[in-house]
């Protein structure tokens, strides 16, 4: 089954990402991705821009309501996600613990919805 590792960063981490990511820090991420691919569990991943670049849209009574900023005003914000193919939550928690994001923020692990349900959405 597939799991999403959702990586949440602190504002400090987002700030650091723009200016001064050290080689060793980037090296840790690169090594992690390499390990994921070599273990044959990697499905996909991506990183997001900082939360202040986000814009939230709602449609209420036919009117478009646009709000500057991310959906939820929490200290730690979604910074990126990784999709993995794994046999169980135990394996997913293990990979989450190895993720460099776990030591500088938080990594939420969530299973993707079952394939049958996903197909229902995408047709």
């Amino acid at each position: 089954m597939q799991f999403a590792l959702m990586i949440h960063h602190t504002p400090e981490e987002f700030a650091m990402r723009k200016n001064d990511y050290s080689d060793s820090h980037l090296g840790a991420w690169r090594a992690y991705y390499k390990a994921l691919v070599e273990a044959g569990v990697y499905v996909g991943a991506n990183a997001l821009e900082a939360p202040e670049t986000g814009t939230t849209v709602r449609l209420k009574e036919g009117k478009r309501r646009v709000q500057d900023g991310p959906y939820a005003e929490t200290k730690e914000q979604l910074a990126g996600f990784i999709i993995l193919e794994l046999p169980s939550i135990d394996a997913a928690l293990e990979w989450a613990a190895r993720c460099p994001g776990a030591s500088i923020g938080a990594v939420e692990v969530r299973p993707l919805a079952p394939e049958a349900m996903r197909r229902g959405f995408t047709g």
Binding site: L86, S88, I89, D90, A92, P111
Partner: peptide, 14 residues
């Protein structure tokens, strides 16, 4: 039910 928790005896190291 939905979270990927397996019904199994943990491996020796865990």
């Amino acid at each position: 039910r939905d979270g990927g928790i397996q019904f199994e005896i943990p491996q020796e190291r865990d």
